[in-house]
Amino acid sequence: MASQGTKRSYEQMETDGERQNATEIRASVGKMIDGIGRFYIQMCTELKLSDYEGRLIQNSLTIERMVLSAFDERRNKYLEEHPSAGKDPKKTGGPIYKRVDRKWMRELVLYDKEEIRRIWRQANNGDDATAGLTHMMIWHSNLNDTTYQRTRALVRTGMDPRMCSLMQGSTLPRRSGAAGAAVKGVGTMVMELIRMIKRGINDRNFWRGENGRKTRSAYERMCNILKGKFQTAAQRAMMDQVRESRNPGNAEIEDLIFLARSALILRGSVAHKSCLPACVYGPAVASGYDFEKEGYSLVGIDPFKLLQNSQVYSLIRPNENPAHKSQLVWMACNSAAFEDLRVLSFIRGTKVSPRGKLSTRGVQIASNENMDAMESSTLELRSRYWAIRTRSGGNTNQQRASAGQISVQPAFSVQRNLPFDKPTIMAAFTGNTEGRTSDMRAEIIRMMEGAKPEEMSFQGRGVFELSDERAANPIVPSFDMSNEGSYFFGDNAEEYDN
Rank of each mutant, 00 (worst) to 15 (best):
A271I: 06
E469K: 13
S3A: 13
N211P: 09
P322T: 13
D160V: 10
V343F: 02
L264H: 11
E465T: 00
R389T: 05
N224D: 10
E107S: 10
G30E: 09
T134A: 12
P248I: 02
I36V: 14
G460V: 00
S217L: 14
V100S: 12
L264F: 15
V329F: 11
K184R: 09
R38W: 13
L328R: 08
D145A: 11
M371I: 15
R389F: 02
G5V: 00
A22C: 01
G187W: 07
G394V: 04
N397M: 03
L358R: 07
N395Q: 07
H324V: 05
K77N: 14
V285T: 09
E107I: 03
S9C: 01
R175E: 10
P477D: 01
T157S: 15
R19M: 08
Y97R: 11
P410M: 05
N370V: 11
A131P: 15
D372Q: 10
A387M: 01
N370A: 15
A284Y: 15
E443T: 03
Q409Y: 11
N370K: 10
K98W: 09
K227S: 08
D16I: 05
L264V: 08
I36A: 12
Q58E: 12
A451K: 08
C275H: 05
R361Q: 11
F458N: 00
G268N: 13
K87A: 02
Q235M: 05
A131K: 00
T350M: 04
W386K: 09
W120A: 08
E64L: 11
L110K: 12
S60T: 14
A70R: 03
Q42N: 03
A179M: 10
A323F: 14
L154I: 15
L108E: 05
A131T: 04
Q20R: 10
D439P: 00
F206H: 12
F304V: 15
L154Q: 01
G212V: 01
N250K: 09
G93W: 12
D145Q: 06
A284F: 14
R117K: 09
D421M: 12
L226R: 07
Q364F: 15
G200V: 07
S141T: 11
N432C: 14
M456L: 12
D372Y: 05
S359Q: 15
G5Y: 03
G404A: 14
Y10M: 10
P318H: 14
Y219P: 02
F346N: 10
T390P: 12
N432H: 12
R400M: 06
D372F: 11
E469Y: 06
S345A: 09
